[in-house]
Deep mutational scan, measured.
Amino acid sequence: IRCIGVSNRDFVEGMSGGTWVDVVLEHGGCVTVMAQDKPTVDIELVTTTVSNMAEVRSYCYEASISDMASDSRCPTQGEAYLDKQSDTQYVCKRTLVDRGWGNGCGLFGKGSLVTCAKFTCSKKMTGKSIQPENLEYRIMLSVHGSQHSGMIVNDTGYETDENRAKVEVTPNSPRAEATLGGFGSLGLDCEPRTGLDFSDLYYLTMNNKHWLVHKEWFHDIPLPWHAGADTGTPHWNNKEALVEFKDAHAKRQTVVVLGSQEGAVHTALAGALEAEMDGAKGKLFSGHLKCRLKMDKLRLKGVSYSLCTAAFTFTKVPAETLHGTVTVEVQYAGTDGPCKIPVQMAVDMQTLTPVGRLITANPVITESTENSKMMLELDPPFGDSYIVIGVGDKKITHHWHRSGSTIGKAFEATVRGAKRMAVLGDTAWDFGSVGGVFNSLGKGIHQIFGAAFKSLFGGMSWFSQILIGTLLVWLGLNTKNGSISLTCLALGGVMIFLSTAVSA
Rank of each mutant, 00 (worst) to 15 (best):
D393P: 15
C488D: 11
L467N: 03
E276F: 11
K373C: 00
T47S: 11
V317Y: 02
G182N: 13
L467S: 02
Q89G: 04
V343R: 00
L141K: 07
K38H: 07
L113Y: 02
T313N: 00
D220C: 08
V56G: 01
F198K: 06
N154F: 03
L180M: 13
N439M: 04
T366L: 07
V33P: 02
L289R: 00
A410D: 07
L298P: 09
P132C: 01
S16A: 11
S403E: 03
T335A: 14
S372G: 15
R175C: 09
L489I: 14
L25Y: 08
L298V: 06
D278W: 00
R357F: 08
F312Y: 10
K110Q: 07
C121I: 03
E162Q: 12
V167R: 00
K301N: 03
N478M: 13
F457Y: 12
C3H: 05
C291G: 01
Q77V: 04
C291Q: 05
V12I: 11
H226C: 15
N103R: 02
F457H: 08
L378S: 01
C92A: 04
F245L: 09
T179M: 05
H144K: 09
G458M: 10
A452W: 11
K394V: 15
S485P: 09
C339R: 07
P132V: 00
M460C: 10
S306D: 00
C92H: 08
E44Y: 04
S7L: 11
R292T: 04
Q36Y: 08
P224K: 10
A117M: 10
K395V: 10
A490L: 13
H210L: 04
V33R: 01
R99L: 03
N103Y: 07
P224F: 09
K166I: 08
K166Y: 00
V169Q: 06
R416S: 09
L300D: 05
Q89P: 01
S66D: 04
I43Y: 05
T254C: 04
A319G: 01
F218P: 05
N163I: 03
L135H: 02
V317H: 01
L196Y: 08
T335Y: 13
R402F: 11
A418H: 08
D155N: 10
C488H: 07
Y90P: 05
T360N: 07
L475W: 15
D71W: 09
T479Q: 03
Y332I: 04
L96R: 02
L489H: 09
T351H: 00
G157D: 02
S260C: 09
S260V: 09
Q261R: 11
T76R: 02
T205Y: 02
G150H: 10
K118F: 03
S372L: 06
G392K: 14
R2F: 08
M140Q: 00
G444D: 12
A270Y: 14
T321L: 02
T194V: 05
V326P: 02
L107F: 12
G181F: 02
R292A: 01
I407P: 06
P222E: 10
A272E: 08
L289N: 04
G29Q: 00
M421Y: 12
E44H: 03
V494L: 15
V169L: 15
P338Q: 03
W101G: 05
Y61L: 14
S385P: 14
D189C: 07
R138S: 05
V41N: 02
V56S: 00
I468P: 10
D379P: 03
N208Y: 00
Y158T: 09
W400V: 14
D379N: 12
N478V: 00
F382H: 08
H210V: 14
L113P: 00
A311Y: 15
T406W: 08
E329W: 11
N478E: 04
T427E: 02
A452H: 05
T479P: 00
S185Y: 14
L135D: 03
A490I: 14
C74P: 01
F108P: 03
S440A: 07
E79L: 03
T360D: 05
S129N: 14
S485C: 15
V437D: 02
A176Q: 04
D379S: 01
S173D: 07
T366Q: 01
T32H: 02
H398L: 01
F453C: 11
C291M: 06
G28W: 05
K409V: 00
L196W: 02
S304R: 00
I4M: 14
C74L: 02
E62K: 12
E329A: 12
G493Y: 01
L25G: 05
F497K: 11
L300W: 11
I466S: 03
K297N: 12
T194W: 01
E133H: 05
G271E: 09
M375E: 15
Q344I: 14
L489D: 12
G228F: 15
K443L: 13
C339L: 01
N481L: 02
G150Y: 00
V255Q: 03
V153F: 07
K454F: 11
G302S: 13
G263Y: 09
G100V: 09
D71I: 07
S499Q: 11
T231L: 15
P234A: 12
L269G: 05
H446N: 11
H226Y: 10
V434D: 11
E320G: 07
S173Y: 05
G383V: 00
H446M: 11
K480G: 13
S72D: 07
D230N: 14
T351E: 00
R2L: 03
G78L: 01
E136L: 06
D393L: 00
A310Y: 14
L269I: 12
Y81K: 08
S483I: 07
E62S: 13
W225H: 06
T115E: 08
H214R: 10
C92R: 11
V256S: 03
L477S: 08
K419F: 11
Y386I: 15
T315V: 12
I387H: 03
Q344M: 13
I407G: 02
G28T: 13
G18Q: 01
D98Q: 08
S433V: 00
T366E: 00
S64M: 06
Q85V: 15
E136M: 03
V317Q: 08
